[in-house]
Amino acid sequence: MALVDRGADAPGLRPARRVPRLVAGWLGIGVLLAGSAWGQDDHFPAGPMAQYAFAVPSTGGEIRDTYVLAELDDGSWERVDLSGGGVGLRRAEIEGQLSRLAQDPRLLQGFAVARERLHPAAPRYRTVRIMVDITRLHDGRPVHRSTVVRATWRVR
């Protein structure tokens, strides 16, 4: 065990160099523990390690998959690229702001603006629509699928 056999005091490190390091080390651990106990994502980089931390019950659990559809100039619809290169945002980020978008669909105007800026040669967006595919689980198996529209915006 390293704890035991490292033995003697730290050689060659004067208190003036040792004490600040010790304080910083313990303080860092304290901040991380506090972040996990009470923190939120907002406290990055000290928030809880919350990715994949929520429970999805085998019965009654839901798998929600968000995507964005856009109506082009010619009236056809396409799926907006949410890898980051499409409108500068990824799916998880849209999901993180979904309730805000549903309350204030005007924000979707930004999608059309970003599309123009990132892909000036591509057809423009006329309508932007946020969709969510919902798969309901029973006994760990998908039993029901549905799709809902969370927000629609006619681009100005």
């Binding site: 996990s36 106990a37 809880p48 390690m49 919350a50 990715q51 931390a53 929520f54 429970a55 999805v56």
Partner: peptide
């Protein structure tokens, strides 16, 4: 701390839930 977060947010049912299928 990831395990801690799972207990704080998902509870003990996390590991027998469907997070991987999700």
């Amino acid at each position: 701390l990831a395990a801690w977060a799972k207990m704080r947010m998902g509870g003990w049912g996390w590991a027998s839930g469907e997070i991987l299928q999700w």
